[in-house]
């Protein structure tokens, strides 16, 4: 017999190294004498979209297209330290460092343009497509190339806030910001085979502000599938220190066929200390998937599982015990 059930889980996640440890990102932004915009950071692109997000922020501030920006990254000899691609920190930390550097760069460009155009004030000066012009009289204009003789380079550092906790009481402010999630899932449990199929998921994810909704939805897909594997599939079968399932023919991870239809809801509530209000979501997106599935299994068959993964053999032995 196939039995269906629904479950929910809510979670939170604190970004960054935490507990008072300095969490620092450094970025360099420059415009060279040919008018090229170069950004130097060392934010590893692990697939999360770090490079895209950083370029989007720069493009927004300088009024440029995505292709106008040259990103130099992931080379220790050319870039400063922007910290690890972990702790869901690159959008928040490196994003902040890049934003600071590019904003200072922009103000330097505007100052130069003011002099070049012989204007008494910065008011009304706009930057778009490597041209600085006066909004109310657009003929007053100068392009980056004509403005810059020697390259202008700006280095900025962002350090996140964190308070070390008291060792005896744990009182302190270890992380910032926190990101929130809530997932609901529906499962179908086959009581004859013990196989659990996740047939639907609704994922509501706080993001602060979405820099790129497409990338967020991709992260939710990936996080959900990883959580699904964690909850009901993945088993290393480690016996006396030896991993028995050390290949994908034995260690089962979800495929596209195991993934349900997911409804993804991006919840925006901008965080004032974050670049454009954006919080990190790389890790938050995995957290509620497995517990929501466990709660749905209980709703379906009335059995609570206290140990993961809930593989078909465990489901069957629990069902048989109930009988």
């Amino acid at each position: 017999m196939k039995k269906r059930g629904k479950g929910i889980a809510a979670t939170f996640y604190g970004t960054g190294y935490g507990n008072g440890f300095p969490d620092v990102s450094k970025a360099v932004a420059e415009v060279d004498h040919d008018g090229n915009v170069n950004i130097y950071v060392c934010a590893t692109e692990v697939g999360q979209g770090a490079k895209t997000i950083i370029i989007q922020m720069v493009a927004e501030i300088l009024g440029l297209g995505m292709n106008d920006i040259h990103l130099i990254s992931e080379d220790t000899s050319q870039t400063l330290d922007t910290g690890t691609a972990a702790a869901s920190r690159q959008t928040y930390n490196t994003g902040n460092a890049v934003k600071k550097a590019v904003e200072v760069l922009k103000s330097k460009l505007l100052e130069k343009a003011k002099e070049h155009l012989k204007l008494p004030s910065l008011l009304g000066l706009e930057v778009k497509d490597k041209v600085i012009y006066l909004k109310t009289f657009p003929k007053k204009r100068v392009c980056f190339k004509d403005l810059i003789e020697e390259k202008i380079s700006v280095e900025e550092t962002f350090t996140a806030q964190t308070v070390q906790m008291d060792e005896e009481t744990g009182q302190g402010a270890p992380y910032w910001p926190y990101t929130f999630s809530c997932y609901g899932v529906e499962v179908e449990v086959d009581t004859e085979t013990g196989i659990i199929e996740v047939i639907k998921g609704v994922c509501a994810q706080d993001v602060g502000r979405a820099i790129n909704p497409e990338l967020i939805e991709g992260q939710i897909d990936g996080g959900f599938s990883m959580g699904l594997g964690y909850g009901i599939m993945e088993k290393l079968n480690c016996k006396d220190g030896e991993i028995k399932n050390n290949k994908f023919s034995k260690y089962l991870i979800p495929t596209a066929l195991d993934m349900p239809e997911l409804e993804k809801i991006i919840v925006e509530d901008p965080e004032s200390s974050a670049p454009f209000g954006a919080k990190g979501i790389g890790e938050p997106v995995i957290l509620p998937a497995a517990p929501a599935i466990l709660n749905a299994i209980y709703d379906a068959i009335g059995v609570r599982f206290y140990e993961i993964p809930v593989t078909p053999d465990k489901v069957l032995s629990e069902i048989n015990r109930e009988i």
Partner: peptide, 13 residues
């Protein structure tokens, strides 16, 4: 600030 947990729960509900 930026604690939209209840909004997330209500969206799922």
């Amino acid at each position: 600030e930026s604690v939209p947990l209840k909004r997330c729960i209500e969206e799922v509900k």
